[in-house]
Design a protein around this nucleic acid. Structure first.
Lengths: 226, 226
DNA sequence: TTATATATTAAGAAATTGTGAACAGATCCG
DNA sequence: CGGATCTGTTCACAATTTCTTAATATATAA
């Protein structure tokens, strides 16, 4: 498998788990580093600046929640993905964990497949909007940071879903997004909505923009074009 | 919905559930087979080689976990997707299930929509980047990600089937595709269409492209040539 | 030539998307 | 708090496009 160019730091005190995870994620194409306790995790994190840190809740030196707390308090790690490993027993922890700013958690015992899919999902979720770049095409500009769309210099107000949908399409002009892709990106994997929902939003966007910038590819999906 | 060319085997001892799932997945375009107990599941799996096996945990003869265990021990089913159906009560099972190499699980009672989205998600996860390569031959270029065909720099709009057919032929210039091959690749194994259907599509492509790039090999099939 | 395969055409079937309205739930505002 | 407004979703059905078929013409190989 090709490299995904993503660095992952795993911290767990059980060498077996460390090894299993490392093996599987490496096979997935990630660059994997390990730490066996909280302090080591923090130390390595500062050096390698990983894209994702997987933290066992229960660890010597500093536990996962503490590590998360410390890292999150630094600007450098504000955006770093953090995923907790929790035992089924400590239900409370991962609730706290997520409140603390973890991005996901996986309960032990760990299934490599599940972990991999969660990790991939995290990166997918993040890569969705790598930057809040303002998209500008001809007389249309889309500013995700301000949540603002302008046509011919005039403000157009889009609802959240409409905006997200437009931004997704416009982020790759010409490329066709399958209906499924759109659902995953805008609505999320777990949400289920009816067939016509996308259409309705597309229509609203077309209507509000007053531009013919979204092309229907029948039986396939939609694409942005100007 | 068009065929996805994926075979799914469902094993559950409750006929109602079996029927509901079969109905919904069939409607989604999958080819669905059923089994009412563990042994039947294993038997059918060996014969039909499904792409995905949906196993109820609680079943007569052999339960889902056992079936999974047995199948996973054979090289043939190393890569086969397995999804468990679990009652909310037996929490422990699906943990074990996932460890065993299941790829996902869905808890009963089953919502067809949820199940469908999970199944689609599984296949999406597995289907790693299919040939999204842009094909370019002389003054013709075919871009599957944009679903776009250009001749001499001008856009030509093809319908889905037309596009798929052209892309298939053009992906191996010179090679003759048997009519059967074409049917399998573009329409899917189980879809039955009349003899003339392919011809009609071929004709439309020739017409729209305005190029003589598809050659008829009488009695055999078609090939792409430029 | 004759039998068979393919091309062409038009028409209807099937599938997909567009549209307007209705609705519940959020959200806003006084 | 209560009403007004906005959002997201669904639904039914219209509009459109795509796909398939069937009938006929044409081409090709033996």
């Amino acid at each position: 498998m090709e490299s995904k160019g993503k660095k992952i730091l795993i911290a767990d005190d059980e060498p077996d788990i460390l090894e299993i995870i490392q093996y599987n994620l490496t096979k997935e194409g990630y660059e994997v580093l390990t730490a066996k306790d909280g302090d080591e995790a923090i130390g390595k994190a500062k050096i390698v600046r990983p894209d994702l840190i997987i933290l066992d809740i229960m660890m010597p030196k500093k536990n996962g929640v503490e590590v998360c707390e410390i890292l999150r308090s630094q600007p450098t790690f504000k955006e770093t993905l953090i995923l907790f490993l929790t035992a089924l027993s400590d239900e409370g922890s991962h609730v706290r964990g997520l409140e603390m700013g973890a991005d996901d958690y996986v309960t032990k015992p760990i299934s490599p497949k599940v972990l991999i899919s969660r990790v991939n999902a995290l990166f997918r979720r993040v890569n969705k909007e790598p930057e809040d770049k303002v998209l500008t095409v001809e007389n249309l500009s889309i500013d995700p940071s301000k949540f603002e769309v302008m046509v011919d210099g005039k403000d157009v107000t889009l609802a959240k879903k409409e905006f997200e949908l437009l931004y997704l399409l416009a982020s790759r002009p010409g490329r066709v997004f399958l209906r499924n892709e759109i659902l995953n990106q805008v609505w999320g994997n777990e949400v289920i909505v009816g067939d016509r929902t996308i259409d309705v939003h597309i229509r609203k966007i077309r209507q509000k923009l007053g531009l013919d910038c979204i092309t229907t590819v029948k039986g396939v999906g939609y694409k942005f074009n100007l």
